[in-house]
Computed example of a mutant assay.
Amino acid sequence: MARDKRLLGAILLFVASAVAWVIQAAIVRAYIYAAVMGNWSEFSRFFGVRPPAEFCFDHCVAELPFFAGWIGVGCFALGFALLFRVWRRPRI
């Protein structure tokens, strides 16, 4: 009995999702570190986001890049949809 190739595709999508989530976790860690230290220059330069204004009194933070997070969410949803389709319509 041969395995369905779509299962391999679903597994690869789940692996890509996990890798994207780990990258997003590292980005959030750097974001929190920059917020605690109050030094947004390195974070802004490395991730290419606009730093906060020099003199601000309210919301003095840089923008959080969430591109890797959206890739993780998308890969997980596609992997789940593919797995559900394989379960609903198996190739015999």
Rank of each mutant, 00 (worst) to 15 (best):
F14Q: 03
V15C: 10
V15T: 11
V15K: 09
V15M: 10
A16I: 06
A16C: 13
A18G: 12
V19M: 11
A20Y: 05
A20V: 05
A20I: 00
A20D: 08
I23G: 03
I23L: 11
Q24D: 13
Q24K: 04
A25N: 08
A25M: 07
A25F: 08
I27G: 04
I27R: 06
V28R: 06
V28G: 00
V28I: 09
A30D: 14
A30N: 09
A30I: 00
I32D: 14
Y33W: 07
Y33L: 10
A34S: 13
A34Y: 01
A35P: 00
V36D: 14
G38C: 07
G38Y: 03
G38S: 03
G38K: 07
G38P: 03
N39S: 09
N39M: 01
W40F: 03
S41L: 11
S41W: 06
S41I: 06
E42T: 09
E42R: 09
E42V: 07
F43A: 00
F43S: 02
F43R: 03
F43N: 02
S44F: 01
R45C: 01
R45W: 01
F46K: 15
F46Q: 09
F47H: 15
F47T: 02
F47N: 11
G48M: 00
G48T: 00
R50E: 15
R50L: 04
P51K: 02
P51W: 02
P51L: 00
P52M: 04
E54M: 12
E54F: 13
F55M: 14
C56H: 11
F57T: 15
F57Q: 14
H59E: 14
C60D: 10
E63D: 13
E63M: 12
E63V: 14
L64T: 04
F66E: 08
F66V: 14
F66Y: 07
F66K: 09
F67N: 11
F67A: 15
G69R: 03
G69N: 06
W70R: 11
W70D: 05
W70Q: 11
I71P: 09
G72P: 04
G72I: 00
V73E: 06
V73T: 13
V73K: 03
G74Y: 08
G74H: 06
C75D: 12
C75T: 13
C75S: 15
